[in-house]
């Protein structure tokens, strides 16, 4: 028996691909918390819409998935893309929008994540989620978001100071 926490999802995806709709509903129950965890902090108030749209893309495109082993990476990429799209669609003004991102472990980030997130653009929120929730390194996160690595790196380099400045303003 494998201890891989991804194994149940991969097995369900294989069964769903064979046309078993009960496996589809089990896969939906299995993937929903994962997708909601990504879409929530990126899309904020539009999180339920983003989660629904991301899962619709995932389930409609299941057949195009070449390798079920790649399920989670693919689902993550779809969830981030849909969350950014829905957040932009429902975009509200971000008057105090930050140019840079808080560093990992910043005490103010821990104090009120939601308030910090609301000051960021959807793309910046996505970087933060990929780095701090998904544990990706910055290069992988920038690739997934189609951002030049240099751009992301320089933003992150200046992050701490400008984040603190915005907070103390």
């Amino acid at each position: 028996m494998s201890d891989d926490p991804h194994e149940p999802g991969i097995a369900l995806a294989r069964a769903a691909l064979r046309g078993d709709t009960l496996a589809m509903q089990d896969l939906l129950a299995h993937l929903t918390p994962y997708v909601a965890r990504i879409c929530g902090p990126i899309a904020l108030d539009s999180g339920p819409d983003a989660t629904q749209e991301a899962l619709i893309v995932v389930f409609r495109s299941l057949r195009s998935m070449r390798d079920p082993q790649a399920l989670y990476g693919w689902v993550r990429a779809v969830a981030v893309r849909e969350a950014v799209r829905i957040a932009r669609r429902d975009g509200r003004a971000h008057p105090a929008e930050l140019a840079d991102l808080p560093a990992p472990g910043d005490p103010q980030l821990a104090a009120d994540i939601r308030d910090v997130l609301a000051r960021l653009s959807p793309e910046h929120r996505a970087v933060l989620v990929l780095r701090d929730v998904e544990g990706l390194d910055e290069q992988t996160a920038s690739r997934l978001l189609n951002l030049p690595a240099g751009t992301l790196k320089s933003r992150l380099h200046r992050a701490r100071a400008s984040f603190r400045k915005a907070w103390s303003a």
């Binding site: 472990g105 821990a110 989620v129």
Partner: peptide
């Protein structure tokens, strides 16, 4: 790393 419990999550009814 920040405690992920504090991150907002979405609810899918």
């Amino acid at each position: 790393m920040t405690d992920e419990q504090q991150w907002p999550t979405a609810d899918l009814d």
